[in-house]
Design a protein around this nucleic acid. Structure first.
Lengths: 128, 128
DNA sequence: GCCAACGGTTACCAAAAGGTGCGTACTATC
DNA sequence: GATAGTACGCACCTTTTGGTAACCGTTGGC
């Protein structure tokens, strides 16, 4: 629950109490970025997300999905059958944000080798 | 210190042990995004950054700057004078990444009102 | 009959992130 | 002489984040 200030709702991520800052912190979480990225035009199910996003736990997956749903970036489709079948889908807002997130993720992948080569923080040197 | 796997260094943020995942986690930290965003073409000093990035503590600022320096996104220029004068600057790699990060930040600012309006998670409703 | 799979929830605990206050050394201003 | 500004480092403590294991109810396969 985020308390909106009564004055000053000019969007600005640099202002501590601005909702934009709050949203940035939600979106830029460790798992949020990966989930938004992997949810492209297809819908994905809980189990599929678990397998595609390596390292995520069931707890964090559920928690992140609920959070993204609450800020209207994804929709949860519960088929109401037994055994359960639930699909997650990006909203149009989510798809729009996904473009920006993907641009960042692809940049990191493309520039990964340049960053880690000759870098003392990475222990095994990459072959030239 | 990140242990590089000997095999499989294909860049992929969805793979747990891929350096790309590690880099994504560094870059998408709570404060990293804001610091990269605010450092545009100008150089900024410690005190200026403290004032511009609302809510950051001295400890986190220093820590984040050191981290960004270690992955070659910023450069630290120590003028070696008393009283101290130190400037931080984006590397060309950092400037390139900044474009992607800014796109995300501006998107959040532009869509902030749409997200928070009629949202039960935000307690004071925004006037229409 | 037993187990896996579905999509979770809950409780408990460990690890990581982050805040606070103090100290450093020097200069310039009042 | 006291205070503020410069740019930090360090120790201590709290808060947040995240992992693990157990559990739920149902169905389908062996």
């Amino acid at each position: 629950m985020f308390e909106l200030p009564k004055e000053n709702i000019t969007p600005d991520v640099f202002r501590e109490k601005c909702p934009a800052r709050y949203l940035l912190n939600r979106v830029s979480g460790k798992w949020s970025i990966l989930i938004i990225d992997i949810l492209d035009d297809r819908n994905l199910r809980n189990g599929e997300l678990m397998r595609l996003v390596e390292g995520i736990s069931q707890k964090m997956l559920t928690q992140t999905l609920r959070e993204l749903e609450s800020i209207k970036l994804i929709t949860r489709h519960d088929m109401q059958i037994i055994p359960p079948h639930v699909e997650y889908e990006l909203t149009s807002l989510g798809k729009s944000l996904r473009e920006k997130i993907c641009a960042m993720d692809r940049w990191i992948e493309e520039n990964m080798l340049e960053i880690i080569s000759n870098n003392k923080n990475f222990s095994v040197k990459i072959a030239e």
